[in-house]
Amino acid sequence: MTPIGANTVLVVAAALFVLGLAAALTRKNIIFILIAVEVMLNASGLAFVAAGAKWHQPDGQVMFLFILAMAAAEISVGLALVLQIYHQHKTLDVEDLKELSD
């Protein structure tokens, strides 16, 4: 099995990131937006690991661990907020949640 080049992995990571971004921009449901953010985080984690493998440095994997921890924290806070939003507004549609506008 031939090893996969770092460039290929980076291209995959970029594609993943763009997919996540597109989802975050277009989705209406907050839960899906959170999932899209998660996809983007993992895309950047993949890019870190690939870069670490290319230069034979452990930093990339360390960074991925950080991202994992941060993502866990983010999703727990995010889901708690989502619950509260649902309790108060009975909807999760971001089009309807515009109370913070000026």
Binding site: L21, A24, K98
Partner: peptide, 16 residues
């Protein structure tokens, strides 16, 4: 303050 319109999508685009 025109930019603060409450639309999450708009904010993400701004960050981007």
């Amino acid at each position: 303050s025109v930019s603060q319109n409450g639309s999450l999508r708009w904010y993400i685009a701004g960050v981007l």
